[in-house]
Write a protein that binds this DNA or RNA. Structure first.
Length: 423
RNA sequence: GUGGCUGUAGCUCAAUGGCAGAGCACCUGACUGUGGAUCAGGAUGUUGUGGGUUCAAGUCCCAUCAGCCACCCCA
């Protein structure tokens, strides 16, 4: 009891069984939503060369937020900070052999060297869903619908969460009309992205710094207040019509202020937020039509989104939608009556496992009271006793830990008896 | 990377610069074939770490680490 516990790496999380059960449950819901739309599961390496991200992910993400280290030969290795460039590479590598439109999903760990805070860690899990090979607004709507389907599965309704949608091409054309030159566009997108986070005065100063004239600034503000701006976009018109048909229109709302941070988005972009605005974005995504070409493939359009495991967990907790999970897979405990009856108890456990039941044994002789307490605390439903009396009569005493009632069951009927009550 | 708050037993928290404590949890027993109650007893701390001030530091000062929160960025 002297050695000091080595602290975990900053920004990582230990998944104790209870948390692991939640992670597994989220994974299940993601799988269900993905597969309902026919998406196939895939994964890439957790380690990638930094050059893969240099192309398009966004300056800060690569330069300041990626975990980068030299391997033993001196090559720079990155712990993947996101999946989309890997996807683009995987598609580019086998472009001739894959079936398009390709629909893939994935759930795995990612790393970003950031300061941990609410809803954000340095090591986190992310659900990625992508469709590659089509550029239709209907494909965009399908992706949004998968996100909505997930919300529906976990019990979050349109009155609680919303998917905010915009389109970069639409914004481009509106900014053109305002006379914003193309080289300023990225800066203006950033400006738009920040508006809700800044005071009006600070935002105006920022707009000036970006190079907008007072007239342009007023024009931009009108733009950002126009909730019907989408009607000027044929793409978004088709997007919302498809979403309506897909049954998820309620979850969607047009928002001219949504622009998304990543540089590779080219068309429709969307992000999910809780309606109360208490949390950061639950998921974000959009259309990226140049990415496959950027990593060396022939041009192929794509659309996708990513959802981290932390914000959604916070939202589910806030709305009291976390499921009751039982981290203990066995609901039967075979007690050890005493040292002489340990092996008979183990034989009984083996017999029941042979019948397909999950069974815990007590791992040493101990007082029965202690074993019942263990069975109770671990979350078991039944405790089984094989003592001298039971052996003599060829029965097993089955105690229901909830009702505290106990009765003998003939050995021959035991498995059937338990199966019936467990189903 | 910037700023703020917080670090005391497994957990939640006390302790005016003056003997480090409580509740819960845990262990043992009352109870040699039975768990959630009750009672009795027991174990548990370099007060995050390292310096400094002081007769005396959990308390004040500095540094550092960690956690949380906000900014940045984003899932």
């Amino acid at each position: 009891m002297a050695a000091k516990i080595i602290a975990p790496v900053k920004g990582t999380r230990d998944f104790y069984p209870e948390k692991m059960a939640l992670r597994a449950w989220l994974y299940q819901q993601m799988r269900a939503a993905s597969e309902a739309f026919g998406y196939q599961e895939y994964d890439g390496p957790f380690l990638e060369p930094i050059a893969l991200y240099a192309a398009k992910s966004g300056e800060e993400l690569v330069k300041e937020q990626a975990f980068v280290f030299p391997d033993r030969s001196g090559d720079l290795i990155t712990l993947r900070p996101e999946l989309t460039p890997t996807l683009a590479r995987m598609v580019a590598q086998k472009q001739g052999q894959l079936v398009f439109p390709l629909r893939w999903w994935s759930f795995g760990p990612f790393w970003r060297y950031e300061r941990p805070q609410k809803g954000r860690a340095r090591e986190f899990f992310q659900w990625n869903v992508d469709m590659v090979g089509v550029s239709s607004p209907e494909a965009d709507a399908e992706l949004a619908a998968i996100g909505a389907n997930f919300f529906w599965r976990v019990g979050l309704g349109p009155d609680e969460v919303q998917i905010l949608v915009n389109n970069r091409r639409l914004m481009d054309s509106r900014l053109d009309a305002l006379g914003v030159p193309p080289e300023r566009r990225r800066a203006v997108f950033r400006l738009i992205d920040r508006r809700e986070k800044m005071s009006p005065a600070a935002w105006e100063g920022y707009a000036e710094a970006v190079g907008l004239s007072p007239a342009q600034r007023r024009g931009l503000e009108d733009l950002l207040a126009d909730e019907r701006l989408w009607e000027q976009s044929e793409e978004l018109g088709r997007f919302f019509a498809a979403a309506e048909a897909l049954g998820v229109r309620d979850y969607l709302r047009y928002s001219p202020a949504v622009i998304r941070g990543l540089d590779y988005y080219t068309g429709t972009v969307f992000e999910a937020r809780d309606r109360a605005g208490a949390f950061r974005a639950i998921f974000g995504g959009g259309r990226y039509d140049n990415l496959v070409a950027d990593v060396g493939g022939k041009p192929l359009p794509g659309v996708g989104f990513a959802m981290g495991d932390m914000v959604i967990a916070l939202v589910l907790e806030a709305y009291d939608r976390l499921p009751q999970l039982a981290p203990q897979p066995a609901s039967l405990v075979v007690t050890v009556f005493d040292e002489a009856h340990l092996l008979p108890a183990y034989r009984l456990a083996a017999e029941l496992r042979g019948e397909g039941l999950a069974v815990l044994t007590y791992p040493e002789p101990a007082k029965l009271g202690k074993q019942f307490k263990y069975a109770d605390r671990i979350g078991a439903r039944w405790a089984l006793i094989v003592g001298p009396d039971e052996l003599a009569q060829n029965v097993v005493s089955v105690k229901d830990l909830t009702t505290r009632k106990q009765h003998p069951v003939p050995r021959a009927h035991l498995a059937a008896f338990l199966h019936e009550r467990l189903s």
